[in-house]
């Protein structure tokens, strides 16, 4: 039995969800319009603005750059974040308490500040390649997600299983891949998705690291909007939403969607 909810509260909730989903429906509608200006409801259905994305070379280039950066930085973050999360949980008593704080620092430091600091003290100071700076910035951005999500999965892991394997003669690396990793599989998938989506949508770090020749998709969208307010941006937005839907479908099939609410 649960207590009754006041009808006014239900009406309110309905409005909140219209408020949440409505604007995205409007973006999709505008992307399908056959007009040269943004309008909703769409006038005459057309996919010409989707074709226009790929006709603009800056969009083609930045889509590829953004995907590369998202994959590489997510991969690096998993590679260094999983062992870190493991160490923080397995050797909690031996390791100092500040170490776990250190891994949430990227969340505490405003992204804009991190972006600017990396530009000033790394990219500009050592004239480091922009692509490398972007990878470093994005890896730092997503690392806390890996550590937090994997730590949550490890919290319910019984480390004595691992000790049993080792005491029976299993080498450490083999133990990691056959005992530990399968047990935190759902955490790894969730971390991958959160990192990938966060990286692909990032503005605040990338905005300082883009220059002639290299840019990411969200920054290119901003640049395009400054000059044209046509449905192209709406159709790029729809592409990004389609990517999100695809990713959510993967979560749904592997973990169930309520997983994300945890």
């Amino acid at each position: 039995m649960t207590s009754k909810i006041h009808p006014a509260l239900i009406v309110f909730t309905v409005f909140v969800f219209i408020f949440l989903v409505g604007p995205l429906v409007i973006v999709i509608g505008s992307a399908l319009s056959n007009t040269t200006y943004l309008t909703f409801p769409p006038q005459g259905l057309s996919l010409r603005w989707f074709e226009n994305i790929f006709a603009i070379s800056a969009f083609r280039r930045t889509i590829i750059t953004s995907l590369q950066i998202a994959f590489i930085s997510t991969f690096i973050a998993l590679l260094i974040g999983i062992p870190a999360a493991y160490a923080l949980n397995r050797y909690r008593i031996q390791l100092p308490g500040w170490l776990s704080t250190l891994f949430v620092l990227p969340v505490l430091v405003p992204e804009l500040v991190l972006g600017f600091a990396l530009l000033k003290n790394f990219a500009a100071e050592f004239s480091a390649p922009i692509f490398l700076s972007l990878i470093i910035g994005h890896t730092l951005l997503v690392l806390p997600y890996v550590v937090r999500v994997i730590s949550a999965s490890l919290a319910s892991f019984d480390f004595s299983i691992e000790e049993a394997a080792i005491s029976l003669g299993s080498p450490p690396l083999k133990t990691f891949f056959t005992i530990l990793l399968p047990n935190v599989r759902s955490g790894v998938i969730a971390a991958f998705i959160l990192c990938f989506i966060t990286s692909i949508n990032d503005v605040s770090i990338s905005i300082f690291m883009t220059g002639p020749g290299i840019s990411t998709l969200p920054i290119q969208i901003l640049a395009h909007m400054e000059q044209f307010f046509d449905p192209t941006v709406a159709s790029v937005s729809v592409l990004l939403m389609a990517l999100t839907v695809g990713v959510m479908a993967i979560v749904e099939r592997t973990l169930g969607l309520t997983f994300l609410a945890k």
Partner: peptide
Amino acid sequence: TGVVVRSFAWMI
């Protein structure tokens, strides 16, 4: 959905 897309929706 990214912050650019969500802000853009409100511009429309």
